[in-house]
Amino acid sequence: MADQFEPRILGFLCNWCSYAGADLAGVSRISYPTNIRIIRTMCSGRVDPLHVLEALRQGIDGVLVTGCHIGDCHYITGNQACEKRVKFLKDTLDQIGIDSRRLRLEWVSASEGGKFARVVKEFIEEIRQLGPSPLRKEILESASQ
């Protein structure tokens, strides 16, 4: 099972910094694995805790939230709100028995194409070690009943 497990990662990227950084990785032709799907928001502060929870409920193995470096947010404090929410979410996840490492927060600027690719690669490997999301197995199990 471990060899076949391909992590499914969902990334939330903010328009001004991290989405541009991911674009730059593309423009620079820096390769990373295909495991990630990306949702664009205007600001990392738009990412609602319920969005993250829905992603996990769907059986997604890891959620990567990215935004501008602190101090560089296009909307001044949006990423700070995001940071606080992610901290709260991580505590909540641990509390309800989902490994909080499945949620990762990274700051990626528009010029950090290399960093984006590296973070994606690292996160995929980390999730691969953690194994499939416990919610994923339940989905599969409930489907087979």
């Binding site: 969902l10 799907r37 949702i39 992603a55 409920r57 599969l140």
Partner: peptide, 16 residues
């Protein structure tokens, strides 16, 4: 709109 993207990001079985 965001939920729609989350739900269709990967092909999954129907969630509980």
């Amino acid at each position: 709109q965001i939920m729609a993207e989350i739900k269709t990001a990967f092909i999954m079985e129907a969630p509980k």
